[in-house]
Amino acid sequence: MRELIPGVNVTDINDIDSKSRREFVKKALSGSALMLLVYAPGAAALHGRGTGWKQMSTEHRYAYVIDIHACIGWGGCIRACKQENHVPDNMFRTWLERYVITEDGEVYVDSPDGGLKGFPPLNDEIQSKTSISFFVPKMCNHCEHPPCVQVCPVGATFKSPEGFVLIDHAHCIGCAYCVQACPYGARFYNTEIGKSDKCSWCYHRVQDGKSPVCVEACPTGARKFGDLLDPDSDVAKILAGRQWAVLKPEVFTSPTCFYISLPHEVV
């Protein structure tokens, strides 16, 4: 499934033989050895240190799929997440947004209290000029190249072997650099504990054989979670269909939260 994950670039389709790829890797590595001597941190940054899971053996590679069409914006996922993960008020590990695109192409977006209590119906004025409207669940994208992990000065946040981007609250110094670095606003500074906080894909539940609580709570199947290494899993099948998109692809973070039927207006 690895090649389904974005970020593999080849200049020519014929280049995809393993030999030339190996050579490329060799060249890149010898170059980086030189750089390491000259400027270790820079080289480490360039070669994505901090996402060393690739070298580790793992039985699972998890991914998350969000189907925009299926979401009804009821907010049960947000409420469940708040309770499961003890998230303080006005902070969100996951939240819902409502997009309204009018006939003139104006984009109205709102997210009252993160969608915690669902959404009040739109007023008549906006409804009358609406061309399309939909809900967008948002959360940590558990990126393959997480900028938040890259900037953490102490290694308190990391990419786990199975694809989780996690925070070690016993080691976090609370500088909030990772909050700045996240392009998706998925991280927040938890003022109650004085540390950065974010979605963990319910690591504790998944290790216990359960789904993340938001997936569990979703009545319409808009949120799906599964193992990419298992070809029979929902997410593996959906990704094989190749009709997915990710948020802010221009920042090259390679999210492993994939969206189905994501309109281009969504940021």
């Binding site: 941190p41 953490c152 000065p153 102490v154 290694g155 110094i173």
Partner: peptide, 15 residues
């Protein structure tokens, strides 16, 4: 925990 910056310095972090 400020000294963690010196004890477990993450080489990819500018900070």
């Amino acid at each position: 925990r400020a000294l963690n910056i010196f004890f477990t310095p993450h080489a990819s972090s500018a900070m």
